[in-house]
Simulated scan of single mutants.
Amino acid sequence: MSTSPAEDRAESLRMIRDSVAAIVPSDGGLGRVRGLRFTLPGIDPAVWRSIGEMGWIGLRLPEGDGGIGLGMSEACALYEELGRALVPEPLIDASLSARLLAASGDDGLLAPLLAGESLVLTAWQESADSLEAPGDAGATRLFIPMAAAAQAFLLPVREAGELALYAIEGARPAVLKTQDGGHFGSLAADTGGARRVAHDVAEAMELALDEAALGTAAYLLGLMERCFEMTLDYLRQRQQFGKALGSFQALQHRATDLKIQIVLTRASVEGAAADLDAGADGDARRALVSRAKARAADAALRVTREAVQLHGAIGYTDEFDIGLFLRRAMVVANRFGSSALHRGRYMRCVAQPASG
């Protein structure tokens, strides 16, 4: 029996979502996440290998580059499921590195990265709240997620008007732990012992950063949706004055407001992913990504904060899982640009030139 393109896409998305069960407990338990908090390197090498074996790191790359050639819609479905489980392995960042290495044609680092045998991270950020890689040769690179787990780093450096790409292996970045139990690394931009792997990756870098920003929005969507579901379950079960908390109209109104935020975020993320798959580029792509990321960042912080409040005093304890979602949202929300940065970028991208 033949199927339509829409049905094929729906089946592809379902299979991507189902594949996450390979690394996430069937009951949604967060024991593994808790066990990795505030440890170094902060990820599970066995899980990272599984991620590579399933093809997730190269999910967006063409088959000719060792990837599986799926769309941004599939990538966002995957990231959403990882957000629901608070998976700490830096797949979005590794996928960014994979795109740069594929553009460079250097298979020496790309093949083991795609296989999950190594972790390669890109040290692109030079200041807080940015979505550009200036490539300043003298600038320390900041906010490299889970940097202690990486075997190599990619360093974009501006040379003669182009964005060259260097590979640094064996570096030991300075590490600063974050409130969700992970860490950021900082790395001196020293190309003395580095190997240049590409003369110009400016175009690939811009696309990779946009895809990472949209992927982060999808991760936040999954995170807030799971957090909201847990909160609804709590409101149905917790009794006060002989009634379930969820029966009180004031709490129902608050829950409805949060549900609206999640639905609007889903529409924005899925719409942006579909338009990118349809070929949106330039300012159109940037506007779509920024609209989704701005909404996801604001909504995730609102949903997780109110979820903790709706749980009452127990929600503020470290032993109760709901707080893990708020801590993770507070760290991830500004990754690849804050909501303020993306609102500004959106306005610049959609602004119409003044008429004469």
Rank of each mutant, 00 (worst) to 15 (best):
G29Q: 10
G29D: 08
L30W: 11
G31A: 10
G31E: 13
G31Q: 13
G31S: 15
R32V: 12
R32K: 14
R32I: 15
R32H: 15
R32Y: 13
V33P: 06
V33C: 08
V33Q: 13
V33D: 12
V33Y: 12
R34W: 15
G35Q: 11
G35Y: 13
L36S: 08
L36R: 14
L36C: 12
L36E: 10
L36P: 11
L36W: 15
R37G: 06
R37H: 10
F38S: 03
T39D: 06
T39F: 06
L40G: 09
P41I: 01
P41S: 01
P41R: 00
G42N: 05
G42P: 07
I43F: 10
I43R: 02
D44M: 07
D44T: 05
D44L: 10
D44K: 06
P45G: 07
P45A: 05
P45D: 05
P45K: 03
A46P: 08
A46V: 12
A46Y: 08
V47P: 02
W48K: 00
W48E: 02
W48M: 03
W48Q: 07
R49A: 11
R49I: 08
R49C: 09
S50R: 14
S50W: 07
S50C: 12
S50F: 10
I51W: 00
G52T: 05
G52I: 01
G52C: 04
G52S: 03
G52H: 02
G52N: 02
G52A: 01
E53M: 09
E53G: 07
E53T: 10
M54L: 14
M54S: 10
G55D: 05
G55K: 01
G55T: 04
W56R: 01
W56N: 01
W56Y: 12
I57M: 06
I57Y: 03
G58M: 04
L59C: 00
L59V: 03
L59F: 03
L59Y: 03
R60I: 03
R60H: 07
R60D: 03
R60Y: 05
P62L: 05
P62R: 02
P62M: 03
P62D: 06
P62A: 00
E63P: 08
E63R: 14
G64R: 08
G64Q: 05
G64C: 04
G64S: 07
D65M: 09
D65Y: 03
D65C: 11
G66T: 02
G67I: 01
G67Y: 01
G67R: 00
